[in-house]
Structure formats: structure tokens, C-alpha cells
Design a protein around this nucleic acid. Structure first.
Lengths: 70, 70
DNA sequence: AAGTATAGTAACATATATATTACATAATTC
DNA sequence: GAATTATGTAATATATATGTTACTATACTT
């Protein structure tokens, strides 16, 4: 679960703790998401987007890994 | 959790079962997501986007409910 | 060197996303 | 009217997202 949460957070000058407060989760949850250690829910993704003023695509989009399509 | 999964799914002419197969979940999970009865994980949102050829913003973006910002 | 702020991480608990199985309904087709 | 297909939904089980608490390390300040 690669994402751009850390970049977006730093751009709006928030600490993990501040972002956590804004979106209503704990600092640990933000840390784990930034590290890509897991797979947040849509609701939390949206809250993070609102907090950093970006869209889902800007923060969470990942291109489909090739393969699959034939 | 309002979203446009059903519209997007019908546009690419898939049944709930077919979409479920493509993204690797059960039909019930797709049904519940379409009904807005819950809050899928980011990974599943991305799989659905790949399957219907749309972006996260197109299928899952929800404007921030007013309020909050002062 | 002690105090504070930020961030990484681990153990355990709880809430909930998802699976499994099953039943129900409506629309089609034989 | 029986068989099939698509969908909604309910009960129970499992996996995992998230909370809670706590320890660690680094950087900065005094």
C-alpha cells in the first residue's frame, strides 16, 4: 500500500499527531499508513484527503501492476 | 459510504458476481458496498477501479460535508 | 546532561471488513 | 409452473483495521 500521505502531510505542515487528531485516529494508525504497512478504509482515506486538501487520486492512486489484462 | 460502484459496474456490463470474481471478493461484499452499507478498504477500492476502468475520484470521491472549516 | 517533540514499533484488545452458507424475491426462459 | 439468473439480506466465523499502552531512538532546546 504505497501512498503519498507523508508528502501531502508535510506539505500542509502537520505532524503525524496533528493529522491523526484532524482525522480522528491515533498517531500509530497514521504512522502505519505512511509506512505502507497497511490498507486503510475508504472513510479514513477520505478524511486524510480532506485534511491535506488533496483528492483520492492525488494521495492514494496506484497504477495497476501490469499483468492480468489479456 | 455513498459511491458510484453500481453505475460504473453497469457501464462495463458486469454483474455483481463477475465484478466480485475480477476483484477477488464475494458477491455479497460487492452488494454491500453498492448499497453503501460499508466502508471498503483502499486495496479493494483500487481493485474495483481497475475492473471498471475508472479512477478512485470517479468512483469513490465524496465531497467533504460542509461544517468543520472555519 | 536533562527535557521535550517527533516518529517507529510491539503486544494485546476491540470493532468491523470480508467469507461462508443459506434463504428470499423478481425476471426471464423452458 | 419449474429452472435459471441476478440481487438483497441474515447468521455465524475469520481476518484485519484501528485503539490503547508503552517502550525505543533521534533531534532539538535549555
Amino acid at each position: 500500500m504505497k501512498n503519498k500521505v507523508k508528502i501531502a502531510r508535510v506539505q500542509v505542515d502537520l505532524t503525524q499527531q496533528q493529522l491523526a487528531n484532524k482525522v480522528g485516529v491515533t498517531r500509530q494508525t497514521i504512522s502505519l499508513i505512511e509506512k505502507g504497512s497497511y490498507n486503510p478504509t475508504l472513510k479514513l482515506c477520505l478524511e486524510i484527503c480532506y485534511a491535506v486538501n488533496k483528492s483520492l487520486d492525488e494521495v492514494f492512486w496506484i497504477e495497476k501492476e501490469s499483468g492480468g489484462e489479456q
